[in-house]
């Protein structure tokens, strides 16, 4: 930091071309729209849980708490590694940054693999929207599983997008397009990944811990 701060003329030139603060504010505004998208679903969940609390309680026994907990730990760890990756690139450590970014991408893939096994097991037990088993059950149970697949599915989609974005960032780091001089692309990708993590932090207790 002191090294860069002592060379204001270098930064001045950089500042003519790049506006890191503007880029970050733009990213945060985008994250707010994402938050609003999920807020709508959280509102639906809250309202229906209030109306059908007994059904939601019963449905909560059907979700895999262990897989949910493991996936929580995987996502929290991936948030750590993306933060470490950014810290490394800011210190000019290209290979450490790339390694942490690679671990982050692997964590995202592990999360999706777990999700695959989880959903397969539930679908195998006849728990999917419109299944004969659910159609014969109460409205509350149907709403729970409708919300479960919509919310974790939309979140899963965000994980997929996050993995794609982070893969591009990894290529940029390796090619030197993201560096200690210009880390904002990686920082913004990291912000997106953390938001995905935060949404999961709320999804986990609401769908896996209500039994």
């Amino acid at each position: 930091m002191s090294e860069i701060a002592s060379k204001p003329e270098v930064l001045h030139v950089k500042h003519l071309h790049k506006d890191e603060k503007g880029a970050k504010i733009g990213m945060w505004l985008f994250l707010f729209t994402e938050l609003l998208l999920f807020t709508g679903l959280f509102l639906l969940y809250a309202a229906y849980r209030y109306v059908y609390s007994a059904d939601f309680h019963r449905a909560g026994f059907e979700t895999h708490t262990l897989i949910g907990a493991v996936n929580t730990i995987i996502l929290l760890t991936s948030s750590l590694t993306v933060a470490l990756s950014i810290a490394a690139i800011e210190r000019g450590k290209k290979w450490i940054s790339a390694t942490f970014l690679g671990i982050t991408i692997l964590c995202g893939l592990f999360f999706l693999v777990n999700k695959y096994f989880e959903w397969s097991s539930e679908i195998g037990r006849g728990l999917y929207p419109g299944s004969p088993k659910l159609l014969n059950d109460t409205n509350g149970i149907n709403l729970f599983f409708g919300l479960y697949y919509t919310m974790t599915g939309l979140h899963g989609l965000h994980v997929v997008v996050g993995i794609i974005v982070l893969t591009f960032m990894l290529v940029f780091v390796l090619r030197g397009k993201i560096s200690s001089e210009d880390p904002v692309k990686l920082e913004n990708a990291g912000l997106y990944w953390h938001l995905v993590d935060i949404i999961w932090i709320f999804l986990f207790p609401l769908f896996y811990l209500i039994n």
Partner: peptide, 8 residues
Amino acid sequence: NVKTDTSG
């Protein structure tokens, strides 16, 4: 700005 961008 310089500080917020690089220190963490």
